[in-house]
Computed example of a mutant assay.
Amino acid sequence: MNWLLVVLGAMVGAPLRYLTDRAVQSRHDSVFPWGTFAVNVTGCLILGLLTGAVAAGAAGSHLQLLLGTGLCGALTTYSTFSYETLRLTETGARLYGVANVAASVVAGLGAAFAGVALAQAVWT
């Protein structure tokens, strides 16, 4: 049963990632990978909220598998982040590459912490 929850979450997360990435990137005339940045930070926020909800007893392990492992696992992408950063540096856009790494780490961690704090405020 657990694997089915992961599969169902991933079935939503993967297309959502692709569609969100394309929609965000099409609105920016820049080599910076805004689409990947947006899905990764959003995934961190969702996972932070979910983690806070589980810690507060407001969500259980099944929801954690469905949304955390399945949805967020398919929505976020470390491999694409790494590839896009590598491509930026290889094509001479080193400043964008460094900005991508710094902004992704800071915003991702910030979103996760904000999600946990929001969950604690709501459910504690």
Rank of each mutant, 00 (worst) to 15 (best):
N2W: 13
N2P: 12
N2E: 13
N2H: 15
W3S: 13
L4E: 15
L5Q: 12
V12M: 13
G13S: 09
A14V: 11
A14C: 14
P15L: 10
R17A: 06
Y18K: 01
Y18I: 00
T20S: 14
T20F: 03
D21Q: 12
A23S: 09
V24L: 05
Q25Y: 01
Q25N: 12
Q25W: 08
S26Y: 00
S26M: 01
R27P: 00
H28D: 01
D29E: 12
S30M: 03
V31T: 14
F37S: 03
N40F: 03
V41A: 14
G43C: 04
C44L: 04
I46R: 10
I46P: 12
G48D: 02
L49F: 04
L50R: 05
T51V: 01
T51L: 07
G52Y: 04
A53N: 09
A55F: 09
A56R: 11
S61F: 11
H62G: 15
L63R: 11
Q64D: 15
Q64L: 13
L65M: 14
L66D: 11
G68H: 10
G68V: 14
G68Q: 05
G70S: 06
G70E: 05
G73Y: 05
A74H: 10
A74M: 10
L75N: 06
T76Y: 08
T80C: 00
S82A: 14
S82C: 10
Y83M: 13
Y83F: 15
R87C: 06
L88S: 02
T91M: 11
G92F: 04
G92T: 02
G92R: 01
R94I: 07
R94V: 06
Y96G: 12
G97R: 06
A99W: 13
N100R: 04
V101T: 12
V101Q: 09
A102S: 12
S104F: 10
V105Q: 00
L109F: 15
L109W: 14
V116Y: 06
L118W: 08
Q120C: 07
A121K: 07
T124Y: 12
T124F: 12
